[in-house]
Design a protein around this nucleic acid. Structure first.
Lengths: 328, 328
DNA sequence: CTGAAAGCGCTTACAG
DNA sequence: CTGAAAGCGCTTACAG
């Protein structure tokens, strides 16, 4: 049915051996320029294209990176996806996209990654059980947790320096408006939410400023509802620090709807610096996560581990920077 | 290095032939329950997993769908990506994600898809040259243009019924506020932008209401800048119809910044019904594109073409529905 | 540098 | 139903 043309066909037309055809298309193999030309001409004529699967079968490696993502509703992550795809493309790698609905990656998703023998795995905005993570180790598949850490783990992770960032945010807020504050958490089982709270709390306690925590879920609706709950409980904080931007936007909309003036009555700070944070309707003060830098760290680690597997674990942190706009 | 266990190892442990092991893991092959149990036990013990590439090599087919996407900044598309991934997972297919920066898909992206011999391709928010599209036809790889049509094509496409939708929008706007109107286009080489203009224009001309077209690019910034340009040129339309929601949000922010009251002075309508359209800050009137339905149409077509290739071309259109909120 | 040959891990006629 | 064998399209020692 599909007129599949293979290296043998090309060899025949070019008048060389199948091995030579293979060598022309395999980086790092040696052929004379003359053979190369003959082969390329024949390949062109027949529309030949090396079969990636035969290649994978024999080299026991692939040029596919598995990218696991959960929170596609948070604009931060599509951006991350784009950067990874673009960056890996430069090195000849493609992205197998896996979406998970659960906080913890499910076995069926793992199966997919293992079945396709991916060269590396990036896990974004989700966690996985220790023994599943160990499965990748056993198969010598390098793994990066992006924007998350495993609690107990010795796995490689790339995150923003959340502790430092949230300390800076707390320092900024306490330097100006004093008064009780509110922290709106994301899903509490995430390292990001916990660390951002920790740094924030540290500085506040140190300066004797009380804060109240509300638990939310990293979504716009979550932020919105939480702010309404906060108001209905009579809380009137000087400032609200939401664990990510998309929640902060929900907070802003809820406060405005109740006639609360931002920043005069309540200041609002987010985290991420997504595109929408700079929109005129919001002008959200936030902490910028340097996606480029985080992606570069991840890509470099994966490529080096693909080249030579060491299984080294490290919690890489990048700094990012404070972005002051008009919600503070 | 990687302790790769194959069917032969399992066969030895289970005391059966390698063929039997293969049959246990190949859907549709017949084995006695007894053999199955022996094999599964051995496989479990060794951590066996069929090699997907050997399988692909021999069946000349894969369970990978290539998804090509451009406008990841428009929240409509991450949503689409999620739906496709979820839907295909049910059928055992995975998504190879390809991101393109250009309106027209580049050859290198095509190469990737062909190299991996994908079972089918979805092209979203981008177009491709005819001869490239023909390359897929030649390889009997089914192809769907999602939310786009090729001008001259006989390819399968799934779109919203843009003509009907934009007529309905025009009818709604003219039934209430009369007066000159503005259409803000997306990239003008897209079928979506052209069709939405056409339906809108038809009704307005029929009712003798003038309209002005501004060319933009389907982005928030584009919508924002275009609205500012419109104001600076002294245009004060009764209503603005933006070719998608994300531009409409930019328009709203720009108008508000200039003190224009929405909907009292200017009404605004978008297209897509992205999450943000329902946010309290915007409450955008729009046309809902039924993503579920569009995805289902696409998935069903691809699965049936994968099952038996016919190469049939059809421009499928789904209706969607008008969503009235407070910008009109 | 080049070719003949082995082999990657599977599926699938073909006998039994 | 099961096993022995051929073969998918490549890469890669091994000779020459």
């Amino acid at each position: 049915m599909k007129p599949t043309v293979n290296a043998k066909d090309v060899a025949k037309l070019a008048g060389v051996s199948q091995s030579s055809v293979s060598r022309v298309f395999f980086d790092g193999a040696k052929v004379t320029e003359k053979t190369r030309q003959k082969v390329l001409a024949a390949a062109q004529e027949l529309g030949y294209r090396p079969n990636e699967y035969a290649r994978s079968l024999i080299t026991n490696s692939t040029r596919i990176i598995g990218l696991v993502m959960k929170g596609i509703h948070n604009p931060f992550y599509p951006q991350v996806l784009k950067q990874f795809t673009t960056s890996f493309k430069k090195y000849g790698y493609s992205i197998l996209f896996v979406h998970t609905n659960n906080d913890e990656i499910q076995n069926e998703d793992i199966e997919t990654l293992l079945n396709y023998n991916v060269a590396g795995v990036i896990i974004t905005d989700a966690t996985m059980s220790m023994n599943v993570a160990e499965a990748f180790k056993a198969n010598h598949i390098p793994l990066v947790f992006f924007n998350r850490k495993l609690t107990t783990s010795d796995f490689y992770s790339v995150c923003c320096n959340n502790l430092n960032a949230s300390r800076k945010i707390a320092e900024f807020l306490t330097a100006r408006g004093e008064g009780p504050m509110v922290y709106i958490s994301g899903n509490e089982d995430t390292s990001t939410s916990r660390e951002r709270e920790q740094g924030f709390a540290e500085v506040l306690e140190q300066r004797g400023i009380p804060y109240q925590k509300y638990t939310s879920d990293f979504t716009y609706d979550g932020g919105y509802e939480t702010a309404r709950r906060m108001l209905s409980e009579g809380d009137a904080p000087a400032a609200v620090f939401a664990a990510n931007d998309i929640m902060a936007l929900g907070v802003i909309d809820a406060l405005r709807k109740s006639g609360v003036k931002i920043p005069e009555q309540v200041k609002v700070v987010g985290f991420d610096n997504i595109d929408m944070a700079s929109w005129p309707a919001y002008q959200l003060t936030t902490w910028e996560q340097p996606i480029d830098e985080m992606v570069d760290e991840t890509v470099n680690y994966l490529l080096s581990e693909i080249d030579e597997y060491t299984g080294q674990a490290q919690a890489v942190e990048v700094e990012g920077s404070f972005v002051e706009r008009s919600t503070t």
